[in-house]
Amino acid sequence: MKGTNLGEFEELVLLAVGILNDEAYSIAITKEINRITKRKVIFPVVHSALNRLEEKGFVESKLGGATKERGGRSKRLFTISAGGKKALLRVKAQRDELWSLIPKVVFKNA
């Protein structure tokens, strides 16, 4: 039974899918993550993460948007599914809760 947990990297990818909206296919997602996080994320890793996310049911995909530079082949365009949205929100809620529990004093000393 595959876990339905959302990993840290998967969360990034999922968010990037959200950001790109209609144009979310693997290469664009990689570029977006690299641009925002300044991390050197490589394409194959994103590709396999997307695959995992789809297996877990967090994204849905459909083919479309063929271009000439792709040799006329379609892109796999991803959208966040209902399950994905739920997972993202759950992660965010957890984070917010954790944030709210940190005493203010802690940041004073840091």
């Binding site: 693997s26 063929a66 892109k75 796999r76």
Partner: peptide
């Protein structure tokens, strides 16, 4: 099921 997209992706990277 993955070929169409993946091959396209790789071609796109190649062109770039």
């Amino acid at each position: 099921s993955l070929l169409e997209d993946l091959q396209g992706d790789l071609h796109e990277r190649f062109t770039h």
